[in-house]
Amino acid sequence: MVLALEQVGVAFGGFRALTDVTLSVAPGQVVGLIGPNGAGKTTCVNVLTGFQRPTHGKVILQGREVSGLAAHEMRRAGVARTFQAGRLFGGLDVLDNLACTGVGLGLRRSVAEHEASALLNWMGMAALESRAAAGLPYTDERRVAIARALMGKPRFLLLDEPAAGMSEAEAADLAALIGRIAAELGVGCLLIEHNVGLVLSVCTQVVVLDGGRIIEKGDREAILGSRAVREAYLGTYAEAA
């Protein structure tokens, strides 16, 4: 009962964004995906959510190959995602933003709004319901985007740099929220983050990408002790300097 990539490769013309990537997320599990800029993290999420077709390999959802499904079909199959930029529906209010996912999943509008209201309550954001999505403060925007992705109880949630630009305290709140999503809702989460501290605090498994390949996989200790990881990160720092 997992969401997985099996030996996935993605090539854009001559450029290989991903090579032979195999990873999996189980329900209730939080898997971290880290790596330097340009390592292929977002491409991984795009492949897992139907936004990018793999050039090689398979996407597997609950034992079934789903490599050819379109993005909206993957969402209906239970794989939700957020984006680096919040990408809320700016002209709609917060409740309608969530209701959009509800109707996208085939609910009637009133049912979708009811569920949206309950979900905002669960996340402690009931007060935002009638606010316009455009112009929300940054952290609220991120949280609404997560709420929108949680509509219809997806089995998997892929978070693309949800903590980018957050303060330490805000990132800690986010970590707690991700923990609740996994524990209380049983959703399997894949967390892409640059904030390695955040990833190590909530993830039981971490996958490290560099140059489109997995260079390390394992629990916190394995990652902290890995030479390959240190080199990948130090390498980028060296290049940057």
Binding site: T49, G50, F51, A70, A71, H72, R75, R76, A80, R81, F83, R87, L88, F89, C100, T101, V103, G104, L105, G106, R148, A149, M151, G152
Partner: peptide, 9 residues
Amino acid sequence: VAAAASGID
């Protein structure tokens, strides 16, 4: 893009 990610066809 976000609409597709919301399951909207």
